[in-house]
Design a protein around this nucleic acid. Structure first.
Lengths: 229, 229
DNA sequence: ACCTGAACACCGTTCAAGT
DNA sequence: ACCTGAACACCGTTCAAGT
């Protein structure tokens, strides 16, 4: 009887927080591919079925994970200039997405009504309303900035994915790519020039530059609409 | 011996085109969830293993599907004004993404160097180069427009996903949502106002309006940069 | 109330073996 | 050259049964 292990006490109970914490950690490390209910359960020292006591299904777990990381976005001080505030919000949003690249997939797939998501749009609306936007223009202005953030991050991730396939298997890949690239150069003169000029830039800093460029264009356009009223 | 079926002739052979065609059809109808190698194979009257003769793995099949639908985007006439041409390209791009919502997931995940993807960026570069953009600004300007397209579609799809969960299970969902929505109204005044004003708009037309709004802001910003040189 | 263990109906991928 | 059939190592989800 001394051999029989103690009955697991009450504090061994899971919490939703622990589950989403483990899920986010796995997603960060290995992406959606690495995430399985069985894996999360194992990491918590529990059977897969146990998770279904706390969560209806995998999709719901993803919704929770999504809102959890949305909480990492920093809302700027209310006293700031609207352009600076909006830019700060966009940059913080972008940095969060780059820390958790798996989120991008969920952002177009999952309904997104968690508390952190709502707080974030409230913050954005407040900034733009303070600047003078109202009604339908207010919605459109906020959407414009948000859309740019997630579009830009999607492009950066795709770029990185491309670089990754080019780096793994450098021997054979480069040989096969050789002929393909020559045809590109012949049929796509503009692209060829830009590829040559961009071949050895740092993906991260160049992505950041493009992000800031487009954001500035957008804010200029918004400011112009504001003056027109 | 008369009962023995005829040996399948040569034309029974698969082609990559058929495979991606079936894959795209399944993805359009049921999304990534419905796509499996076994399902594609079955639809072609063949075993799952047979696909691996034409395609290295599921991921490669997705790359092919991605480039296939990118071919649907219409490149505008070269004679057009650059703003009109760019807007036409963006709108056609957007419409394609809405026809094939599953593409959005791949756009941030898959390397994207297929022939149609390249032709599309070549077209975009040509338009912007014709307008007067060059060097790093050229890259950034095209990225700005592309990012807006995919960001806007991502937002529209997320909106639709949210509406879908609100519609299915109307009884219980609305009851539970009642308390949640009241807290939203209390803690998020701006959001509450916008939700009330937007509650009965058509998602599609409103998304289109926001898309055009942001695109116009962006093009204004780009035009301003052009005048400054 | 909370978890296990086993089961069900699936997956992607590999590979000998056939034709 | 092209495909089958079977196998391997996985999945998400359910649910009686335990404690």
């Amino acid at each position: 009887m001394w051999l029989r292990p103690e009955r697991p006490p009450r504090d061994r109970r899971l919490e939703r927080e622990q589950i989403v914490g483990v899920a986010v950690a796995i997603l960060d490390a290995e992406g959606h591919q690495g995430l399985s209910m069985r894996r999360v359960a194992a990491e918590l020292g529990v059977t897969a079925g146990a998770l279904y006591w706390y969560v209806a299904n995998k999709n719901e777990m993803l919704e929770l994970a999504l809102d959890a990381v949305l909480g990492e976005v920093q809302v700027p001080d209310p006293g700031m200039d609207w352009r600076a505030a909006l830019a700060a919000l966009a940059h913080s949003h972008r940095r969060m997405l780059l820390r958790h690249p798996w989120v991008l997939t969920d952002l177009s797939t999952q309904p997104n009504l968690g508390p952190n998501a709502l707080a974030l749009t409230e913050a954005g609306l407040a900034i733009l309303a303070g600047a003078g936007f109202a009604d339908a223009d207010l919605d459109a202005a906020l959407a414009a900035v948000n859309d740019h953030v997630i579009g830009a991050v999607a492009a950066e991730l795709a770029w990185r994915a491309t670089m990754r396939t080019a780096e793994t298997g450098p021997g054979e890949w480069l040989e096969q790519a050789e002929g393909y690239l020559r045809r590109i150069r012949e049929n796509h003169p503009m692209l060829a020039r830009r590829m040559a000029a961009t071949s050895d830039v740092d993906v991260h800093t160049e992505s950041e530059r493009r992000f800031a460029f487009a954001l500035d264009c957008l804010l200029d356009g918004l400011a112009a609409r504001l003056r027109r009223r």
